[in-house]
C-alpha cells in the first residue's frame, strides 16, 4: 500500500468512526436511555410495589382491553388485508387506484381525528345513531359504540388497517400472476389457487404485517383516547399509563412506569419476532429466485 492509499484508508476509518459514534449516541440518548429509565423508575420503590402496581383492578382491566383490542385488530385486519391485496393485485377493476389510496388513509391521518370522526359517525348525534337506536329498540339490546368497548376496537382497527395489505401487496405485485393463470388454466378454482399458490407466496409478508399491526395496536393512544373515557372499563394500557402519570402523586407516577414496562417488554418481544420473520421472509424470497 503506498502513502496516498494509506491516507485514503485513514480518512475512510475516520468517517466510519464518526458515523458509528453519531449513530450509537443518537440511539442511546433517544431510545436506550429512556427505556432504561422506564425500567429503573418502575423498580424504584421495590419489586413488591412493582408487582402490586401491575395487579390493581384498573391495570388488569386495561391489560385485558389492550390485548383484546390487539387481537381483534390483527384478526380483522388480516382478513380484510388479505382480501384487499388479493383484489388489488389479481383483478383489474374501475377505481382500483382509488381503493389502493383509501387503504393508506390511516397512515396519513392523525389518530385523534380518526377517533373524533367515529364520534361524529356513531355517537348520539352521529349519522349512524338512528340505526343503532333502531337495533337497540328492536332487539332490546344496549349497544353503544362510542365511549364503550366497540369504539375502542373500531379505533384500533382503523389505525392499524393498512399494515397488513401494505406488506402483502408489493410481494404479490413483484411475483406476477403467471402461476395463478397456469393453475386456472388447469381448472383450479379461485380458492384452491389462493390456498396452494397465492397464499404460500405471501405467507411471510403476512406474518410480518401481522406483527407490525400488533405492535401498533398495543401502543395506540390518540384514536382510542377520543373514544374511551371510563377508567377501569374501556381504558387501554397507554390510557391507563397517562391517567396514572397525570394523577400526580409519587406512587402513581412510579406505577405509571411499572405499567409502561409491560409495553416495553411487549415491544421487545415484537421486535425479536419481527427480526425472525423478516429473516425468514428474505430467505424465502431469495429461494424463489
Amino acid at each position: 500500500m503506498d502513502y496516498t492509499e494509506q491516507t485514503k484508508q485513514k480518512g475512510h476509518n475516520l468517517v466510519k468512526g464518526v458515523l458509528i459514534t453519531i449513530s450509537v449516541l443518537f440511539v442511546g440518548i433517544m431510545l436506550i436511555l429512556p427505556m432504561v429509565s422506564v425500567v429503573t423508575n418502575a423498580l424504584s420503590k421495590g419489586f413488591s410495589f412493582y408487582v402490586h402496581s401491575l395487579t390493581t383492578e384498573y391495570v388488569v382491566s386495561a391489560l385485558v382491553i389492550t390485548l383484546l383490542a390487539t387481537l381483534v385488530a390483527v384478526v380483522v385486519n388480516t382478513f380484510f388485508g388479505i382480501m384487499a391485496s388479493w383484489a388489488l393485485t389479481r383483478f383489474s377493476f374501475k377505481g382500483k387506484h382509488v381503493l389502493a389510496t383509501l387503504i393508506d388513509i390511516p397512515f396519513s391521518i392523525s389518530p385523534v381525528i380518526a377517533g373524533l370522526s367515529y364520534i361524529m359517525t356513531f355517537g348520539r348525534m352521529g349519522w349512524a345513531a338512528p340505526v343503532i337506536n333502531w337495533i337497540n329498540a328492536t332487539f332490546h339490546t344496549d349497544l353503544q359504540i362510542v365511549f364503550a368497548l366497540p369504539g375502542v376496537l373500531l379505533a384500533t382497527i382503523f389505525v392499524t388497517f393498512p399494515f397488513i395489505s401494505r406488506e402483502i401487496i408489493p410481494v404479490l405485485n413483484s411475483e406476477g400472476c403467471d402461476e395463478e393463470e397456469a393453475a386456472a388454466l388447469m381448472g383450479a378454482g379461485g380458492f384452491t389457487i389462493f390456498r396452494k399458490i397465492t397464499f404460500p407466496k405471501m405467507k411471510w409478508a403476512l406474518i410480518y404485517g401481522m406483527i407490525l399491526c400488533a405492535a401498533r395496536a398495543l401502543g395506540e393512544f390518540g384514536a382510542v383516547s377520543a373514544l374511551s373515557k371510563t377508567r377501569g372499563k374501556t381504558f387501554t394500557l397507554p390510557l391507563e399509563i397517562d391517567a396514572l402519570y397525570l394523577s400526580g402523586d409519587s406512587d402513581s407516577i412510579v406505577s405509571a412506569f411499572s405499567v409502561s414496562s409491560i409495553l416495553v417488554i411487549l415491544a421487545i418481544v415484537v421486535l425479536v419476532l419481527r427480526n425472525i420473520f423478516e429473516y425468514r421472509e428474505k430467505k424465502s424470497s431469495n429461494e424463489s429466485r
Binding site: D178, E179, E181, K196, I197, S288
Partner: peptide
C-alpha cells in the same frame, strides 16, 4: 408460459 410459471412452492 414463457416464464414457465412453475409453482415455486411445489
Amino acid at each position: 408460459f414463457q416464464s414457465y410459471a412453475l409453482f415455486r412452492y411445489m
